[in-house]
Amino acid sequence: MSRMALPDPAVLASAVSGRDRLALATALNLLDDRRPAARQCAAEFLDLLPAEKLDADGHLIGITGPPGAGKSSLTAALIQVWRQRGLKVAILAVDPSSPISGGALLGDRLRMHASGADREVFIRSLACRGEFGGLSAEVWPMSLAMLAAFDIVLVETVGVGQKEIDVSKMTDTTCFVAQPASGDSIQFLKAGIMEVPHVIVVNKEDIGMAARKTLSDLRNTLGRRTDADGWQAPALSASAALGSGIEALADALDAHRNWLLERGQFTARRQRCQAEWLVKHLREEFGRYGIHRLGGEDALFATLMGQPRRRSPIAEYEALRARVMQ
């Protein structure tokens, strides 16, 4: 693998769509590559991925929650259930970077280890490399590449503060994992600081009382509240350790996807995800100034949602970037 050799984007895109594991790994490396030639190649690659899969197929799920709540353990348990249902699963697991060294220990993978040598499960870890609301800027483009090859793509965020659930803006369905006996998330929900995720699950129900109490508090707080689209988030209980409540959790995630499909919102949501990613990324790079140069946030969203989704987020980003720098 010489440092200059870039893959042929068309060959790569068709191999990824054909579910070639080496090709997907190569694609993810490419999407991580910041050299200009690689960015160009990545943009072309994304354009060549099958549109129907990226716009209207698969299920892109975000899983978030405080550190140690059991996001990775639940993911491992969900993988088992999905595999039994014949679904192929890809995971993007985001871990914190060391603020001092910039290095990182990518530890989520260990908890998901149960997938052993299963070739229909693909796990890529990412370091968050600075801020991005518990994500990493590469998450969206990488999710697209994974959607081209897998039925379910799940993004696990860094265990962030309890109120940021940015991942909800870049996935079809967001699942928030609550830690039993920690009232913070409930407070944030009550105060309206935290956006309501699509599914809430209290993990570790095996510990008993504390988990039951958290669940009933959450149910009281949520009441019959719905999100902006009218979806009413269920609050569930599970234990990754015992494997209990996992089928129901998988069903609840799937119910939200069906709900989006029935209401014809699915494709629009994917488009919205891309718009959110573009704006967030621009804000990261240029601050408010950049957004202002592009006419302000509302106008920017209106334009992005008004036009058909340009397939390659990287190409679109570069175009917007050029406009800011004009």
Binding site: S97, S101, G103, A104, L105, L106, G107, R109, L110
Partner: peptide, 13 residues
């Protein structure tokens, strides 16, 4: 040590 000198480390035990 690898993390401390800036590598991203995958270690599954």
């Amino acid at each position: 040590k690898g993390r401390d000198v800036g590598f991203e480390i995958v270690y599954e035990g």
